[in-house]
Design a protein around this nucleic acid. Structure first.
Length: 688
RNA sequence: GCGGGUGUAGCUCAGUGGUAGAGCAUCACGUUGCCAACGUGAUGGUCGUGGGUUCGAGUCCCAUCACCCGCUCCA
């Protein structure tokens, strides 16, 4: 069984040097992770497997590595800048989309259109603003509420005077009005009102974004279409990280600033489109052909999380495969839809191949295959550039569930057309594009076969390299029982579990009493009961369920139960003694391919030979030498990081030149001549 | 963004206002003939951070940061 929680994988990653939290010395920065010694090996191996399988073993592919920073114009014409630069809200009732700042601006101005001479209008207005301020985060909340209370207090004093003043003025009684203006109390009240209003205005201006957000949170805004007050939160879709080329002193938004602005790519694809003509000419390629690229991409995600699944800096493995537009496809040639299907199949099989270890049984393979699926996106999920997209998804453990690991999109001729000058009117209409006055070229292609010039269509298989790492880790992770606990040990667990139940049932009764008396209870009876059921069920299935015991103890309802705390350490010890953690990684992906041990570390001749074997292989792949523990522990350590083979040098080795080769998944050992090691290991490391 | 939880040694955690602990890991020496061996000793913590209450705070209060879970969201 693969990992049953992301937590297990996360722990292993941090403990064994796959992944570390970024900027940890300063408390960390959410969503950024560093890849440690084993992580960089695994990630490199994944990228290598992808590069070899998509470029070397095909006849229609080329590689590329474009710059991360690209001209702002790339992202203007690709549609990325315009589509995702404003704070947007969706009405949950009628699904209309609005700019959040427009709605809030209209709402603030609304009172001016109403009868400004009515006291209750103003009061309602101030109270509404106070509710909005109350929905703001601290310290804005306190400051805002204070300002709104002051304005209400000032209004209460000022309003009767103001109304009197207006009354005189309306009646044409200038003398009385003037007398009021000169009156000391009235002036003071007026002054207080004015400064309160000023403070209010400034507060909103200075905290525009937070205020905007709070308006929706406080449910003060109405949908202009349907009147509902239920909106999604304002999302500022400015997903791209910005920087500037050269020193820029200008303020944001000025022409000077914009001219120097560059974006960190949110996808590697545009770098390929920029180089379509270069690659085609330089390599004398005919359509169909593809360009592959591996590289970092950056998205300022609104909600990052789930370990390395969604991060703001990540790595993509992308292919843009250029094909004939439908109107030029001849009888017997693949059209865009068929190319799309073929790539989905190709890529799906790639995932399955590397998700399984060669030692996997048919049942294992079926179980693995069941955790992958290809799912066609529904029309409302499709990105602005795509005609169709099929997501390849993996069933991650725990709450993450099905997650996208690759998208295979049919981008039509959208991108190459968008980056071309002189776009014909019908294409502008068809692709909903604006004319491109910035581009210097037309990204078309003369097809000698069709004897026509056209802009190719594109199929884009785009996989996440960092997500691939998480996928393969989750799939490879196994806690295995290797030594059955004794009957005595099982009986001990059973009696401990019975004791836990007895104690917990007492706690449930106590809690029920507290709840009946209207007091807060220390335990939630339902949760404790649920925990007891899980525990009993797990204990009943011993010894097969041994590794599940610890998961059961992590149950919500197990918290604050004393006997559970006592039960945990010996149980942990027992589970650890009886199980091994093994990463059944495909050998091509394993960060360390081979480990060499001397059977005894205090025999120099064994150490010497073991180190010599290590040195013999270290030019070809990652191999480690270790003698810092007993042989059993050394094997376990390597299992945990997925090392496919371990070699042990013993006294027999000195005599007949053979060593013990121990295979990771089966733990079986074989005697192999040192000279035969290359021919023994090589095919096995390639997964044959 | 909201709600709940967690934060103590490299890791897993105990510590219920009164001298900071255990197991594992690491290092040294010895022992050890193949699946998480053992003995002896050593290293290692301003208890996430910043305030406050107190004679005294890992423990109580407030704030803040990070992570986890659940919603919400997601090119």
């Amino acid at each position: 069984m693969p990992a049953n929680s992301l937590e297990q994988v996360r722990n292993l990653c941090m403990r064994r040097g796959f992944v570390f939290p970024g900027s940890a010395v300063y408390g960390g920065v959410a969503s950024f992770w560093d890849y440690g010694p084993l992580g960089v090996e695994l990630l490199n191996n994944i990228k290598k497997a992808w590069w070899q399988d998509t470029i070397y073993t095909r006849n229609d592919m080329e590689g590329l590595d474009a710059a991360v920073l690209m001209s702002r114009k790339v992202w203007q014409h690709s549609g990325h800048e315009a589509t995702f630069s404003d704070p947007l809200v969706d009405c949950k009732a009628c699904r209309s989309r609005f700019r959040a700042d427009d709605l809030v601006g209209a709402w603030i101005g609304k009172v001016r259109q109403e009868d400004v001479r009515r006291a209750d209008t103003w009061l309602r207005h101030f109270q509404a603003h106070e509710r909005v301020c109350a929905a703001m985060p601290e310290p804005l909340r306190t400051a805002g509420v204070q300002i709104m209370q002051e304005i209400q207090a000032a209004h209460e004093i000022w309003w009767p005077l103001g109304r009197l003043f207006l009354k005189f003025k309306d009646a044409g009684d200038e003398a009385a009005a003037r007398k009021m203006v000169d009156d000391e109390d009235a002036r003071r009240a007026n002054q207080r009102m004015k400064s309160a209003q000023e403070a209010h205005k400034q507060f909103i201006e200075q905290n525009a974004t937070a205020f905007e957000f709070a308006c929706f949170k406080a449910k003060e805004i109405e949908c202009p279409k349907c009147g509902s007050k239920e909106f999604t939160e304002p999302r500022n879709f400015n997903l791209m990280f910005q920087s500037h080329v050269g020193p820029v002193a200008a303020d944001k938004g000025t022409d000077e600033e914009k001219a120097a602005r560059v974006y960190l790519r949110p996808e590697t694809a545009q770098g390929i489109f920029m180089n379509f003509a270069h690659v085609q000419r330089a390599m004398a390629r005919k359509i169909p052909f593809g360009v592959a690229q591996i590289g970092k991409a950056f998205r300022n995600e609104i909600t990052p999380g789930n370990f390395i699944f969604r991060t703001r800096e990540f790595e993509q493995m992308e292919i843009e495969f250029f094909i004939k537009p439908p109107q030029f496809v001849k009888e017997g040639e693949k059209n865009d839809q068929q190319w799309h299907e073929e790539w989905v199949e190709q890529r799906f099989n790639w995932w399955l191949r590397y998700a399984t270890s060669p030692s996997a049984t048919l049942e294992d393979r079926d179980a693995t295959a069941a955790r992958f699926r290809a799912r066609a996106q529904t029309p409302d999920e499709l990105a602005h550039y795509a005609k169709a997209t099929t997501d390849i998804e993996y069933l991650f453990p725990g709450s993450l569930g099905w997650g996208e690991i690759e998208g295979v999109a049919n981008r039509t001729d959208f991108d190459l057309t968008a980056h071309s000058n002189d776009i014909p009117e019908e294409d502008l209409k068809r692709l909903k594009l604006e004319p491109n006055k910035d581009s210097t070229v037309k990204l078309d292609y003369f097809d000698p076969d069709a004897k026509a010039r056209y802009i190719p269509w594109v199929i884009e298989p785009s996989a996440g390299a960092t997500r691939a790492m998480l996928t393969f880790l989750c799939e490879a992770y196994h806690d295995e029982v290797v030594t059955e606990p004794t009957k005595q040990q099982i009986d001990q667990i059973k009696s401990d579990a019975a004791m836990i139940r007895k104690n917990a049932e007492k706690k449930i009764k106590e809690a029920q009493k507290e709840i009946a008396a209207g007091r807060e209870a220390k335990h939630d009876p339902a949760k404790v009961e649920a925990f007891l059921n899980v525990l009993d069920e797990t204990v009943a299935r011993l010894p097969a369920s041994l590794t599940e015991l610890l998961t059961a103890l992590d149950h919500e309802g197990a918290q604050n139960l004393e006997p559970v705390k006592k039960f945990r350490p010996p149980t942990e010890k027992l589970v650890e003694d009886c199980t091994r953690t093994v990463l059944r990684l495909h050998p091509a992906l394993a960060p360390v391919k081979l480990a060499v041990f001397p059977l005894k570390k205090n025999k120099p001749e064994l150490v010497e030979l073991a180190q010599a074997i290590k040195e013999r292989f270290q030019r070809h792949f990652r191999v480690v030498y270790d003698d810092s523990a007993g042989i059993g522990r050394l094997y376990r350590r390597q299992d945990e990081i997925g090392t496919p083979f371990c070699i042990t040098v013993d006294f027999e080795s000195l005599e007949d030149g053979t060593v013990t080769v121990r295979e990771r998944d089966s733990m079986e050992q074989e005697r192999v001549k040192i000279d035969d090691l290359p021919s023994y290991l090589l095919p096995r490391l390639q997964g044959e």
